[in-house]
């Protein structure tokens, strides 16, 4: 006679929550299991982390001069030089990044779904010891970062709300224009805190997921995660904060940047023209 225990099969054994699907050919089969998905998540995480770090470091050009940051932006479009069509490599990077984003998010979503169906909550709140704020908020900081990404693109790439004040190619100007607004600066601060928190757990976690593990350096993994997220936090927060306190502004952009002759594309974007446009 079958037992009356629910969630059990005819022999009284607990039924699996999910059945294994047919194995796909390599390497798609890696993505079929949670451990494989975590692996993919870690790899895409590394890619995205690399982007965030490079983006942050690149943005530091803003502290050199308006010209430097604008040149930097231009250089990105010119990646690959004359060998390939202009912006081709940049678009390739953009598509790659977008792809990594999609995979990262999709794996996160399906892993979260899997855990949800496996979990049952305690009546009395669980008293966590190791699970920290960062690890438990990954599923909140993740979507925040996604929303922030769109916001950031709309703000500084598409110039949705800067409207006429948005100048294509004048990165410095757009940044100052945007972050001068207090609400926008707050959004940047909040989002970047979320990003750092996300990166803190992600960076530690990716060593686990990839199985990079050796007693010789295991202790350094936490330190590495703290270091990298602190660096990103400090770099990225500096922009809105320093714009707000007025360290970064356009008051000094009265003379055309030196050497602008060689950079015809950005030559008109001197402070005077900007001011003209604004008035």
């Amino acid at each position: 006679m079958a037992q009356t225990i629910s969630r059990s099969d005819s022999r009284g054994r607990v039924k699996p929550l999910r059945r294994r699907t047919r194995e796909l050919p390599w390497p798609a089969n890696l993505y079929q299991t949670a451990v494989g998905k975590k692996y993919v998540m870690a790899i895409t995480g590394i890619g995205l982390l690399g982007f965030v770090v490079a983006h942050m470091i690149g943005n530091l050009h803003i502290y050199q001069s308006p010209l430097e940051i604008n040149e930097y932006g231009e250089a990105l479009r010119d990646l690959g030089g004359d060998l390939i069509p202009r912006t081709f490599l940049l678009w390739l990077l953009r598509v790659g990044l977008a792809g990594m984003f999609v995979i990262h998010i999709h794996s996160a979503y399906s892993l979260a779904r899997m855990s949800e169906t496996s979990n049952e909550r305690y009546e009395r709140k669980q008293d966590y010891i190791a699970a920290n704020f960062a690890s438990r908020t990954m599923r909140w900081t993740g979507p925040i970062i996604l929303l922030y990404l769109f916001f950031h693109l709309a703000d500084l790439t598409w110039g949705w709300w800067l409207g006429d004040t948005y100048l294509r190619g004048d990165v410095y100007h757009n940044v100052v224009e945007s972050m001068n607004s207090v609400p926008i600066a707050i959004i940047y601060v909040v989002a970047n805190v979320a990003l750092a928190v996300h990166i803190y757990h992600g960076t530690w976690s990716l060593f686990q997921s990839l199985g990079i593990n050796n007693p010789h350096y295991n202790a350094a993994r936490r330190g590495f995660a703290v270091g990298i997220s602190a660096m990103i936090l400090a770099g990225n927060l500096s922009f809105p904060i320093l714009v707000q306190v007025g360290v970064i502004d356009e008051d000094d952009r009265t003379t055309p940047p030196a050497g602008s002759v060689e950079h015809e594309a950005i030559a008109p974007l001197s402070a005077t023209t900007v001011l003209e446009v604004r008035s």
Partner: peptide
Amino acid sequence: EEYFGACTNHGE
């Protein structure tokens, strides 16, 4: 994975 959730490296 047929029975349990996915690890997110909490360490709990």
